[in-house]
Amino acid sequence: NITNLCPFDEVFNATRFASVYAWNRKRISNCVADYSVLYNLAPFFTFKCYGVSPTKLNDLCFTNVYADSFVIRGDEVRQIAPGQTGNIADYNYKLPDDFTGCVIAWNSNKLDSKVSGNYNYLYRLFRKSNLKPFERDISTEIYQAGNKPCNGVAGFNCYFPLRSYSFRPTYGVGHQPYRVVVLSFELLHAPATVCGPKKST
């Protein structure tokens, strides 16, 4: 009989979030998941669920729940959905087409922007091929755009693959930082360890 609440607040209220290319994953298990708490945590810009209804979450049980978190800019949030393409979905964080879970995003301009520009958040701009779903690539190998090998040196047709967002508070919403948490629900042929409040007794 599990009584402890799932530590969603640790994920959502973390002081620092990860850069999207090096997104963070927390496995959540053996706890009571009260998803209604999430609705009250922040004024969400996005709370979209796929393959599951957000209002039914509190009635369900899962084997595992994974919470992935990272920062992107406002106009990239739409890429965090099944079947999307674009720089983020292709080279940084890719959801599977049959994704079961929820994408939660909110504006973090007050936390993640600086007047002089916050350069701490990076994204991958160049990659030889698209990522597979939930693949994480943290390599910093020089990207070869031409025929000549780069031998690890940046220059003509040889690019450092990561680029930094420079978040400034005066930017338009599309270029402001957004914190994203992706909850993916895993149903294996194994005992369910993460249940809503109704199912945990």
Rank of each mutant, 00 (worst) to 15 (best):
P149I: 09
A154P: 14
V65W: 03
I28D: 01
L60G: 08
F62P: 08
L188V: 13
C195L: 08
E10S: 10
A14V: 06
V181E: 00
P191F: 05
F167I: 05
F44D: 15
H189A: 15
G146N: 06
V115D: 14
N107R: 05
K198S: 14
V115N: 14
A67K: 01
A18C: 04
A145T: 09
L183G: 00
G196Y: 09
S53D: 15
F126D: 11
L111S: 11
S108W: 02
S19P: 10
F45D: 15
A22V: 03
G155T: 10
S53M: 10
A14G: 06
C61K: 10
L131K: 03
V173N: 12
P43Y: 06
G172R: 14
C6E: 03
V181I: 07
F44E: 15
T201I: 13
I88M: 02
D137T: 01
F8H: 02
S164K: 14
G51T: 01
K148R: 11
T170N: 14
L5I: 11
G101W: 00
D97T: 10
K114H: 13
P96K: 02
A22N: 14
V37S: 14
L41Q: 12
I142N: 06
Y50L: 01
P43S: 09
A154R: 13
Y119G: 15
E186H: 09
K48L: 05
N87Y: 15
G146I: 05
P82A: 01
V77H: 01
A105P: 00
S139H: 06
S113T: 10
A154M: 12
F185Y: 09
K114T: 15
P7Q: 12
V153W: 07
N157W: 07
R78Q: 14
R16Q: 13
D137P: 02
T46G: 06
L111A: 11
R127P: 03
C6T: 04
Q84A: 15
F17T: 03
D75I: 06
L188K: 15
N24F: 02
T140V: 10
L111E: 14
V32N: 08
P149R: 11
D112E: 06
A14P: 00
R127T: 04
C102L: 00
R136P: 02
D112V: 00
Q176N: 05
K94V: 00
W106S: 01
V11C: 03
E76W: 11
V115T: 14
Q84T: 11
T140G: 09
G196W: 08
V20E: 04
T15Y: 04
N151W: 09
Q144H: 07
L131Y: 02
P149G: 10
T193W: 09
V103D: 00
G146P: 05
K128R: 12
S36E: 09
T201D: 14
V37G: 10
R168Y: 10
A89Q: 02
N24P: 00
Y66N: 11
Y143V: 10
F134M: 08
V52G: 03
P82R: 00
S36Q: 10
Q176I: 02
R78A: 14
S164G: 10
L122D: 09
P169R: 09
F12Y: 03
L57V: 07
N107Y: 03
F17Q: 03
F160A: 13
P82H: 01
F70D: 02
F8R: 00
L38H: 03
T46F: 09
L162Y: 02
N92C: 03
E135V: 04
L188I: 13
R124K: 04
T193L: 10
N120Y: 08
Y178H: 15
V181K: 00
A33S: 08
P191S: 12
T55L: 13
L38E: 04
G152L: 06
L41G: 12
Q176H: 06
V153A: 11
I80G: 02
S116Y: 12
G155E: 09
S53T: 10
F99H: 00
A67D: 01
N118T: 12
D90A: 08
D59I: 04
N92L: 03
